[in-house]
Nucleic acid binder design. Structure first.
Lengths: 195, 195
DNA sequence: TGTACATCAGTGAACGCGCGTTCACTGATGTAC
DNA sequence: TGTACATCAGTGAACGCGCGTTCACTGATGTAC
C-alpha cells in the first residue's frame, strides 16, 4: 500500500475546501475543474481519482460550505458575545464585510440561485445545511414554543440571506449599504432587542 | 425599405420577452441562444441582427423582467385589493404559486445570484429595477418619514426575495412551505396589520 | 396597375473555444524478502 | 539494513460536445418606374 491512507484523504479534503470557497465566490459554473485542481496545487487529470464527477464535488463542497457557514456565523458569534449572541450573529451576517467576501462567507446567499437547478444530491446537501443553520438560529430567536422560535429563525434566515444576496447584486454602493443597514437594524430591533 | 419598421421592433420585443422568462426559469447560463431564438420561432443565426451579444440581451431582458415583476406583484395586487394592498402583495409574492412558477415570477429571486457576476450593463439594469420595485413597495410600507418607509420596503424586499429563493433551493417540501408560511405571516403581521 | 429591383430580416452551415471527462503513463511511496 | 517490487496518486495529452459568434446566402417585402 503506497502512501498512507490519510494522504489521499487529506488531498481530498483540500480539494473540497478550496472548491467550496471557489464556488461561493464564482458560482458552480464559474469555475472549471482545472481551476479547482490548480487551487489545490494539482493538475486536472487527477480529479477523477477523488470524485465521480463535478456534481459529486459540488455536493460535498455544498455540505462542507454549509457546515463552515454555521461555524463562522453561529458558533464564533456566540463565543465573541455570549450575552447577546443573536445581535452578534445579525451584526456579522448582514455586514459589508460579509457582502464583500463571498468566498469565506455563508454558502446560502452565494449559492441559493444555482442550487435550485443542481442535482438531487446537491440540493439535498444544501437542504441539510439550511436545516442545520436554522436549527442553530432557533436556539436564539424569540418565541414561546419551539415552533415559534423555529419560524422566527426561518424568517430571520430568509431576511438575512435576501439582504446579502441583493446587496451583492446591486451595483449602486449606497443602495447596497442601505439594504444591509436597514435589514440589520430591523432584525436587531425585532428579534434581538430583549436579549 | 422592405418590411415595416415595426416588424423588426416586434420581433425584437418577442425575443426579449421570451428570453426574460427563460432566464428566470433556467438561469442565464441555462439557456443558449438557439433555445432563445427557437422560443421566439426563429433560428439562432438571426440573433445578431437584433443584439450585439448575449450579454446585451441579458441586460434588456433583466430590465424588462423587472418591469413585468413590478406590474405583476405591485400594480395588479393593488387593483385586486385596494384596501389592503401590502397584505395582498405579501400574500402573492411569498406564495407557493410564485415559488413554483419562476418563469413568470419576479426576476429578483430568480436572478440575484447570477446578476452579481454579470456585466456592468446587466447589473445596472437590475439595480434600476430594484430601485423601482422598492420605490413601489415604499408607497405601502409603514413609517413616519419617507426614509423610514423606504427602509421598511428594503427589509420587506430582502425578506420576500430570500424566502422565495430559499424555498426554491431546498428539496424538502415541508421545509419549503414552512419558509413561505412563516415569512408571509411574519411580514403580514409586522408590516400590513394596520392597513 | 404591373413588374423589376434593392433591401435586409432571417437562415443554417461553420468556426473556435472552453469545459467535463477519459486514458495511457510515471514516479513516489510502503512493503516483502 | 538494503533492495526489488507492486501500487496507485497524480500527470498531461486527447476527445467530444455545447455554446457564442460569424458569414455567405435567400427570399419576402416595400418602392420606383
Amino acid at each position: 500500500v503506497p502512501y498512507t491512507e490519510s494522504h489521499k484523504a487529506r488531498t481530498h479534503a483540500r480539494i473540497v475546501e478550496s472548491a467550496s470557497r471557489a464556488f461561493r465566490e464564482h458560482g458552480v459554473d464559474g469555475v472549471c475543474i482545472a481551476d479547482l485542481m490548480r487551487a489545490a496545487n494539482l493538475t486536472h487529470g487527477g480529479f477523477y481519482a477523488h470524485f465521480r464527477s463535478k456534481t459529486a464535488l459540488v455536493a460535498e463542497a455544498a455540505s462542507r460550505g454549509m457546515q463552515e457557514s454555521r461555524r463562522a456565523f453561529l458558533a464564533s458569534a456566540e463565543e465573541a458575545n455570549p450575552k447577546a449572541p443573536l445581535r452578534e450573529i445579525i451584526r456579522r451576517y448582514v455586514s459589508r464585510q460579509h457582502r464583500d467576501d463571498a468566498a469565506t462567507g455563508c454558502a446560502m446567499p452565494a449559492l441559493v440561485g444555482e442550487i435550485a437547478r443542481e442535482s438531487d444530491d446537491v440540493r439535498h446537501a444544501f437542504t441539510a445545511g439550511v436545516e442545520d443553520i436554522v436549527g442553530g438560529l432557533a436556539a436564539y430567536t424569540p418565541g414561546e414554543t419551539t415552533e415559534e422560535r423555529r419560524d422566527a429563525a426561518l424568517v430571520l434566515a430568509a431576511g438575512m440571506v435576501g439582504a446579502v444576496a441583493l446587496a451583492r447584486a446591486v451595483d449602486d454602493p449606497e443602495l447596497s449599504d442601505r439594504i444591509l443597514l436597514a435589514t440589520r437594524r430591523y432584525f436587531t430591533a425585532a428579534m434581538a432587542e430583549t436579549e
